[in-house]
């Protein structure tokens, strides 16, 4: 019995999968989702819309039922969302009565509690000690925003809380201008620590927590949207450069200056709206080898482009690389014969 390829040749299988652009795009999305929880909701929506479009097209062409499953999954998620939303809202309402802010400190039992909040650059962890209904000490266990927020800002806030013995808003919010997210994260860390000292403090159900964390993470804000926009552009450019590096013989096309000096000396210059041979070089960056082969019939193979190009790119070189790449692709798809392999 022959084992399936992922088991027989796992590295080869992974490499082949990595060579497929769609797989790489999913990989990028997974990296972003893992690194930035606040982006998960947007990614989720984007992937949902993309799948809906692709499967709807499949349904119209082949009658594939994937789109129905998709709608079913969306319905289930929506249902889960409403259940979680109801749970979270009711817990939040109950929490307002038992919140540890201000005079709420009287509900907190004596002891040391550790709490966590989300800062600008990562989690913030604090340990708060309560004695006789007063906050007597605050220790910062983890603080990721040290690079961006001056050292003196948080201690000033700490002193203010310790003087009053309770969690209160800073008296001089101007001092924290530009560090709103850090301060909010720090306050949340203290509040969550204090909440642990309140008996019967309302908690979200585990299912709601898992559901919201998995599908939505933190609510997306402007910072997240901007970061995603930048990441999207960066990944696309990376992808664009990677394609030619993954294909033997086309690596040099990354360096194309788009100066079109090759077009000036090419006897063909322009066919089917493509500037020759610069267009061929750029098409290999996209991985569109079929189009390169289509256009290759126009190349007269004079090599003038290679002598003119400031970095030595040449049309004939790119065409031969595209032929190789296209043949390799067909072989991997099982279209090529043994003879071709030889």
């Amino acid at each position: 019995m022959t084992l399936p390829r992922p088991l027989r040749d796992p590295l080869g299988f992974l490499w082949s999968a990595f060579n497929i652009r769609e797989v790489r795009l999913v990989l990028y999305a997974l990296i972003v989702a893992a690194l930035f929880p606040s982006s998960r909701y947007i990614l989720f929506v984007i992937i949902g819309i993309t799948l809906a479009i692709v499967w709807f097209k499949n349904y119209r062409k082949t009658g594939s039922r994937k789109i129905l499953y998709f709608f079913g999954a969306v319905l289930l998620i929506k249902l889960g969302y409403f259940i979680s939303y109801y749970d979270v809202t009711s817990v939040d309402e109950a929490r307002i009565i038992k919140r540890p802010w201000g005079a709420g400190i009287s509900q907190v039992l004596d002891g040391k509690y550790v709490g966590e909040g989300q800062g600008f650059r990562g989690p913030i962890k604090t340990e708060v000690e309560v004695k006789n209904n007063r906050i007597v000490s605050i220790k910062t266990l983890e603080y990721s925003d040290l690079i961006s927020v001056k050292d003196n800002q948080i201690p000033v806030f700490q002193r203010e809380i310790l003087e009053k013995g309770m969690l209160v808003r800073p008296s001089e919010p101007e001092m924290f201008r530009g560090a709103t997210e850090t301060l909010t994260g720090y306050v949340n860390a203290i509040a969550s620590a204090l909440a642990k000292g309140i008996p019967d403090f309302p908690e979200y159900s585990v299912s709601s927590k898992v559901f919201l964390e998995t599908f939505f993470g933190k609510a997306p804000d402007r910072v997240t949207i901007n970061a995603l926009a930048i990441l999207f552009a960066a990944f696309m450019v990376f992808e664009y450069a990677l394609q030619s590096m993954l294909t033997p013989g086309t690596g040099r096309s990354i360096n194309c200056y788009n100066c079109a000096s090759c077009v000036g000396v090419c006897p063909v210059k322009e066919v089917e709206g493509v500037q020759m041979p610069m267009g061929l070089v750029l098409l290999t960056r996209l991985g569109d080898y079929d189009r390169v082969m289509e256009l290759s019939k126009y190349c007269v193979g004079c090599g003038r482009c290679a002598t003119k190009c400031p970095i030595g790119n040449s049309g004939p070189l790119v065409i031969s690389a595209a032929f190789q790449a296209a043949r390799q692709k067909k072989l991997e798809q099982g279209i090529g014969s043994e003879k071709e392999t030889a």
Binding site: Y257, N258, C259, A260, S261, C262, V263, G264, V265, C309, P310, I311
Partner: peptide
């Protein structure tokens, strides 16, 4: 490979 080469090519 400056941009001016596009003009020279054309």
């Amino acid at each position: 490979g400056g941009g001016g080469m596009m003009g020279e090519g054309t």
